[in-house]
Design a protein around this nucleic acid. Structure first.
Lengths: 135, 135
DNA sequence: AACACTGTGTAATAATATAACGTTAATATA
DNA sequence: TATATTAACGTTATATTATTACACAGTGTT
């Protein structure tokens, strides 16, 4: 089976948890996910974490590291969780995935002092979103 | 008193914890810090977290979000914790702060689709360090 | 003196994540 | 079809990371 995430067949638990995150307007935390899927038979943290790990691995969701929370991927260019960038509002906590060809090209080609290139990156921008700027 | 971190007078707990992190060749985790400073009278997690919070705030240390660990800042351009970039080796876990004028300029000026600029960022690159590449 | 501000010390607890078992389902290959 | 392999599942217990709540001490200001 292909590894392109559009075609990857999710298992039952993975699907339940992905659907929940995908519907959520904001990033979801693991124990909030757990609480929300208990009625569907997922009872233990480990069941949630295992599904999250897999979903991250195949690029269907991303972890927002600074928030310990998970968001569905809506950016076809960041499959397999290699290259992610987000903006995070420090007031309302709204998180948006950034898809900028310029940014991803710049970072994918970035070399450090020693000329090393890196295979993955995660970038989190912080500031105020448009709404909160106007307040 | 100035807010430039070179001049900020640390309190006793802050100094003890900063010195420990500063001497460490790798990022340190909070409970490892706690273990190491217990002989100096710092007994409780909260004492550690309070010092860490302050040290991060004034830019003397940075948190490596993907590792829940803390590293001393050796980059005079990233004071006040606004703009940080690291490379992380996925094998040996070596973490290095990146100081690249080009990178920081690019990111500080980055605007999203809506033309929004953000006031802070944190970037983590993942890959293999030089040593691990050769193995 | 009264107040605000920052830091401290302590205990308790919350929130996040993993280890260690054994079992079951799906896939691959002989 | 048998069987080996891999990935996922379910459960219990536990490890790790981080915060809440409360009382108090030092410092600087009004």
């Amino acid at each position: 089976m292909s590894k392109m995430h559009k075609e990857y067949a999710l298992t039952k638990n993975q699907q339940i948890i992905f659907d929940l995150i995908d519907k959520s307007p904001e990033p979801m935390k693991a124990y909030s996910i757990l609480f929300n899927v208990q009625k569907k038979g997922i009872k233990a943290p480990l069941q949630v974490y295992r599904a999250l790990d897999k979903l991250v691995e195949i690029g269907k969701i991303h972890k927002i590291e600074s928030r310990n929370a998970f968001i569905a991927c809506h950016n076809s260019s960041c499959q397999v969780a290699k290259a992610t960038a987000f903006s995070i509002c420090e007031i309302c906590e709204k998180v948006t995935e950034i898809s900028s060809a310029g940014l991803s090209k710049y970072l994918a080609n970035f070399k450090d002092k020693d000329g090393m290139k890196y295979s993955k990156y995660n970038l989190e921008f912080f500031g105020l979103c448009k709404k909160c700027t106007l307040k």
